[in-house]
Design a protein around this nucleic acid. Structure first.
Lengths: 132, 132, 132
DNA sequence: AACGTTCTAGAATATTCGTTG
DNA sequence: GCAACGAATATTCTAGAACGT
């Protein structure tokens, strides 16, 4: 049966998603991890602080690469910033990720987001979500 | 032992459930074994003390694993904690379990909770309880 | 670090096995984690200290259950201690595990020990090792 | 026969590392 | 170069199985 509940939303949502939601909703870290202005994506404004201060509190690692791997597993895509620098990038540009069912104020969309490898029926995994 | 009802010894309730109820109602162990704040689950706040001091008083063992096995047998589910990241040397997060018919103040729900393997008709075991 | 061979970093051995080997070879923790007298198995003499002091240094958790799960995955078996107490138990008996290719002084046996789920050919996984 | 205790395994998600396009 | 992915191992939670009372 639906066990291993997580307390945020009393559902069996994967831990990664509820953690990510909690993270981005946290107001005291908005300085370097927050929703984008229009709420359609989220931003890592200071990767160093994010990796050092946030990741180890919520996950069993402190590697940006592992965090990104999880994002990709759940269908998030990086938002590319083109032409944001001449040589390379002025400094490190912010890291931005987006998912069609992960938007500010719409935690209901998140409900049934699935991992790409979670279920045994592959065709149901490719994307995710029933509310669509 | 205080005023709390103690649904023991007067029914055909499995020993595990009445012991668990007694345990969590005990006020003098609330420091490390107690109801959660909203009474919807119970917490093991200090696993080491719980294992050494409480388990052997009620059961024929002092293994957390055996206790958890029984919880799962009766349909209890672990409550996941968002902030369970890299292990801190200092303190462990509490262990929390929940069951829809095991709630503070509602010992009547507990009455007919059944083990998942007790009956020979599997479909009747999945959950349990008639008062619902 | 003493004279014991340490079969790490120079092979494709899974991290769990090389860590386990390192652990049991460490002399300064022999007080509560060590080879058995005949070197055919290893002992956890103080589970609480082992869980708190050793596990988090080598793994991303501090749960005995997770450690045991890994041991079973690699084919280790618990060594049963019969008649280890009359009324209850004087103290806690030590936890002992054994594997036919994990023996003191024979790190060569360990070389090709495989997880039960690692390869895609199930029949080759059941046990393990090529040197036998 | 039901329940309790122990040891091992199943299944899902998480983390790492290396590859693909 | 680099975002996304495949695959192996690791961690977690729950269940199967054997045995005893």
């Amino acid at each position: 049966m639906g066990c291993a509940l997580n307390p945020t939303k009393n559902s069996n949502m994967p831990a990664f998603l509820s953690k990510l939601w909690t993270l981005v909703e946290e107001t005291h870290t908005n300085e370097f991890f927050t929703w984008s202005q229009n709420g359609q994506s989220f931003l890592v404004l200071d990767e160093q602080r994010f990796v050092k201060e946030i990741l180890p509190k919520y996950f069993k690692h402190n590697n940006m690469a592992s965090f990104v791997r999880q994002l990709n597993m759940y269908g998030f895509c990086k938002v590319l910033h083109i032409g944001s620098g001449i040589v390379k990038q002025e400094r490190d540009g912010p890291v931005e990720f987006q998912h069609s069912y992960f938007k500010q104020g719409q935690d209901d969309l998140l409900e049934n987001t699935k991992s790409k490898v979670s279920s045994s029926k592959p065709e149901e995994n490719k994307i995710l979500g029933l509310k669509a």
